[in-house]
Amino acid sequence: MLIGELAAQAGTTTRALRHYEEQGLLESDRTTAGYRLYEPGAVRRVRNIRELLSCGLTVEDVKSLLAYLDADLPEVLSYSPLCADG
C-alpha cells in the first residue's frame, strides 16, 4: 500500500510515517518511481507505535520494542482504580 493509504488506515499523517521511517521504526520498499510501498502489516505496527508514544515512551524506548510491534500489544496499561470507595 502507498503512504497515503497507510496513513488513512492507521489514523495518522504521511509526515508522521516519514518520521517513523527516519527513526528506524518503520520500513518501506520503493516503486520504480520512488513511491513508498508498505506491507499490510504496517497498519498494526504504526498503530502500536502511536499507542506507545502516546503512553509517554520515547522513540528510543519504542526502538527497543521493535520485535514486538507487529503483534497486538498486551493490555497492561488499562485503568483500574486503587480504591473503589475513593
Rank of each mutant, 00 (worst) to 15 (best):
M1S: 13
M1G: 13
L2Y: 13
I3L: 11
I3F: 04
E5S: 09
Q9A: 15
A10H: 01
A10G: 11
A10M: 05
G11N: 04
T12Y: 09
T13E: 10
T14M: 12
T14Q: 14
R15T: 14
R15S: 14
R15F: 11
A16V: 05
L17Y: 12
L17P: 10
R18D: 07
H19L: 14
H19P: 00
Y20P: 01
E22I: 01
L25V: 11
L25F: 06
L26H: 07
L26N: 01
E27N: 15
E27Y: 11
E27G: 14
S28Q: 06
S28H: 15
S28E: 05
R30I: 06
T31E: 07
T32S: 15
T32K: 15
A33V: 11
A33E: 15
A33D: 11
A33L: 13
G34R: 10
G34D: 08
G34W: 05
G34E: 04
Y35C: 12
Y35E: 07
R36G: 05
Y38T: 07
Y38I: 01
E39H: 14
P40G: 07
P40M: 07
P40Q: 06
G41I: 09
A42G: 04
R44I: 07
R44K: 12
R45V: 08
N48T: 01
N48F: 05
I49H: 00
R50Y: 00
R50E: 06
E51A: 11
E51L: 12
L52G: 01
L52F: 03
L53I: 03
S54D: 07
S54N: 10
G56C: 06
G56P: 12
G56F: 14
L57F: 12
L57T: 01
V59Q: 01
V59I: 14
V59P: 00
E60R: 09
D61F: 02
D61R: 09
V62C: 03
V62D: 00
K63G: 08
S64D: 06
S64G: 11
S64T: 13
L65I: 06
L66K: 15
L66E: 12
A67I: 01
A67L: 07
A67M: 08
L69M: 07
L69F: 03
D70L: 06
D70S: 09
A71P: 00
A71T: 11
A71N: 08
D72L: 06
E75H: 08
E75K: 07
E75T: 08
E75N: 10
V76Y: 07
V76P: 00
V76I: 11
V76G: 09
L77I: 06
L77M: 09
L77R: 13
L77D: 06
S78G: 08
Y79R: 12
Y79G: 02
S80L: 11
S80K: 13
P81W: 02
P81R: 13
P81V: 05
C83E: 14
C83I: 13
C83R: 10
A84R: 09
